[in-house]
């Protein structure tokens, strides 16, 4: 929505039709231009198909935002290989695959990548071990891409949120153990609150803007002071 408000044409890519259409419709209702693209993002062929569809519709690419992510909050010993595959797929592999297919278009436009990672990947997070591993991987991947493509005029940065008031938090709160973890994290936060999604979007938008043209390979946490180093 933040990009649409700035006049950008937005290809909304998502795992589910419901999510993709919901956001694209919202953009259109606000007078913006958006298309919805969806499909099972844990299927390795899907990111390349979605990226090709997005590039064809957009006719070029200036900003790529890796925002897809999903996790459950539960002890690592309860996790198994199928869950690992889903979490690594949705948080990390999809971003690698989309970058592979979108990078030539970004090089052509001297565009920008912003990855929405997580402070779990920066500091670790009990109850979200595999998610933290995936997000740590996404952060390192983005910094590495920043090094590789800087001389082609492409910047890549990471926005690293703490807790954000989203549907995934609501979903996890249904499990009383997870609800307790979330409550503890909010209580420990210097600002005693979660971020609003718009506050994360503002950081993404800034890093994508011309004002941030000397910022690349960096991690900007939007976390109310939860992690500082």
């Amino acid at each position: 929505m933040a990009f649409a408000k700035e006049g950008a044409k937005v290809a909304v890519m998502a795992h589910s039709e419901h999510s993709a259409r919901g956001t694209a419709d919202e953009v259109q209702r606000a007078g913006g231009d958006a298309t919805a693209i969806w499909g099972d993002l844990t299927d390795l062929g899907e990111p390349s198909r979605q990226t090709a569809q997005a590039l064809a519709w957009l006719g070029g690419l200036d900003v790529l935002v890796h925002n897809a992510g999903w996790t459950l909050t539960r002890p690592f010993l309860e996790d198994g290989p199928e869950y690992w595959r889903q979490v690594l797929g949705l948080n990390l592999v999809v971003a690698i695959a989309i970058t592979k297919h979108a990078l030539p278009a970004l090089i052509e436009s001297q565009g920008v990548i912003v990855s929405v990672s997580s402070d779990a990947g920066r500091a670790g997070m009990g109850g979200e071990a595999v998610y933290a591993a995936a997000k740590g991987g996404l952060t390192a991947f983005t910094k590495s891409i920043a090094q590789e493509v800087a001389r082609h005029g492409v910047r890549a940065n990471v926005v690293s949120p703490g807790l954000v008031r989203t549907r995934i938090i609501d979903l996890n709160r249904e499990d009383p153990r997870a609800a307790k973890v979330i409550e503890r994290i909010v209580a420990r936060n210097p600002q005693r609150r979660m971020a609003e999604p718009e506050e994360v979007a503002a950081a993404v938008l800034f890093l994508a803007s011309a004002g941030a043209s000397h910022i690349t390979g960096q991690v900007l946490s939007v976390n109310g002071g939860l992690q500082m180093t």
């Binding site: 910094k143 920043a146 090094q147 800087a150 210097p190 600002q191 971020a195 609003e196 718009e198 506050e199 994360v200 503002a202 950081a203 800034f206 803007s209 004002g211 941030a212 043209s213 000397h214 910022i215 690349t216 390979g217 960096q218 900007l220 946490s221 939007v222 976390n223 109310g224 002071g225 992690q227 500082m228």
Partner: peptide, 30 residues
């Protein structure tokens, strides 16, 4: 370049960013 980052952090929409160090170095430190 530096002023743009400062001004972003000063803006109302940056209210949840605190205790951070935002590096504006063109990737020199990478």
């Amino acid at each position: 370049d530096v002023a743009a980052a400062v001004t972003f952090l000063a803006s109302p929409e940056a209210g949840y960013i605190t205790g951070q160090v935002l590096v504006v170095d063109g990737g020199l430190g990478l």
